[in-house]
Amino acid sequence: MKGISAIDLVLLGLTFIVMFLAIVWALGVAPTEAEQGDVQRIFYFHLGSIWPAFLAFFYVLYASVRYLMTRDMNWDRKALASGEVGLYFASMVLITGPIWAKPTWGVWWAWDARLTSMLVMWFIFLGYVLLREYIDEDSKRARVGSVLGIIGASMVPFVYMSNRWFETQHPKPVIAGGEDSGIKDPQMVWALVLALAAFTLLYFLLARIGAGLFNNEGRIKDLHARMHLLEEER
């Protein structure tokens, strides 16, 4: 039997410390942004979640390819765990985005290329996670899910590229306060770096825990199968 590994413990401790520091810096140490006020502080968490979401979806691609090559269920479990965690981070981005947009842009939702892309990406990976809910058998779920994981992740660059092009072709009234504005204070940079580090660590931690959970589920299934066999032999 495997308990919590040392790596998980270190990761857990590290995530706690860095997350704590990130919160302190984002909410306390970093100065208030001149134009937007305190609302701007949500930006650290907003941007902090985007990066792990991408990381997660890239990992889905990688692990899905590995699964199809090896047919080793472990890869599929890693892919699914990563996809689910990625979906949570993408949801974070979609929730914090409008909260930040309302006071700064004056609207809850603007069809900004980044927002639109994130929404589409969220749907792509919602499809990936949902699909698995509705397939009954393990090996089929893994095989079919991996194919969709690869297609979905390969689509992400096109989603971004097309939205960006779309926006440049159709200039809109300039919205005040882009994301890059106002990050000049070194403490702000620190808050951002800490937030990025904290959420990346959190992604690794959650993905590992998720994969471990799925692994245990798989082991229980195997044990059930073996129990059935033993009963038959008797």
Partner: peptide, 10 residues
């Protein structure tokens, strides 16, 4: 449709 439509947004 739920899986197909987001994939064909580009």
């Amino acid at each position: 449709p739920l899986v197909q439509l987001p994939l064909v947004v580009p």
